[in-house]
């Protein structure tokens, strides 16, 4: 159900190592919990971010949520497409709905994050 080539956080972000840069977005589960996304706020390019820093935010009609950086790094690129088409977060969470890319990442940091199976179990455990 969740892609195997990415890692997951307890705050429902995902991160994919694309060799040199890491792409970050939110999971299909998070997107469906929010409902139809109406707005995304993206970080400034070039900004150094710490692990767990609130760097972006996402809004739906009934909810707002911060997006935390899963690892330490520097914002290399942001997905400007989301500004005009926030629905991409719901429609294509792992592909066109990505939020930002990080460089200057120590890929060893990714090891501490959950894999697909662990994340799936985590979601199941926290569903009521």
């Amino acid at each position: 159900m969740y892609p195997n080539d990415i890692k997951y956080t307890k705050d429902h972000e995902w991160i994919r190592d694309e060799g040199g840069v890491c792409v970050v977005g939110i999971t299909a589960h998070a997107a469906s919990q929010l409902g139809d996304v109406t707005y995304v706020e993206l970080p400034e390019i070039g900004q150094d971010v710490k692990k767990g820093a609130a760097v972006a935010s996402v809004e739906s009609v009934k909810a707002a949520s911060d997006i935390y950086s899963p690892v330490r790094g520097r914002i290399a690129e942001v997905n400007d497409d989301l500004l005009g088409k926030p629905e991409l977060v719901n429609q294509s969470p792992y592909d066109q709905g990505w939020f930002f890319k990080l460089d200057d990442v120590d890929t060893a940091d990714l090891r501490h994050l959950m894999d697909a199976a662990k994340y799936e179990a985590f979601v199941a455990e926290h569903a009521e």
Binding site: T38, Y39, E59, S60, V61, K62, A63, A64
Partner: peptide
């Protein structure tokens, strides 16, 4: 609209 800015949500 834009209620996600407001206190009852945020």
């Amino acid at each position: 609209t834009l209620q996600a800015r407001e206190q009852h949500i945020r």
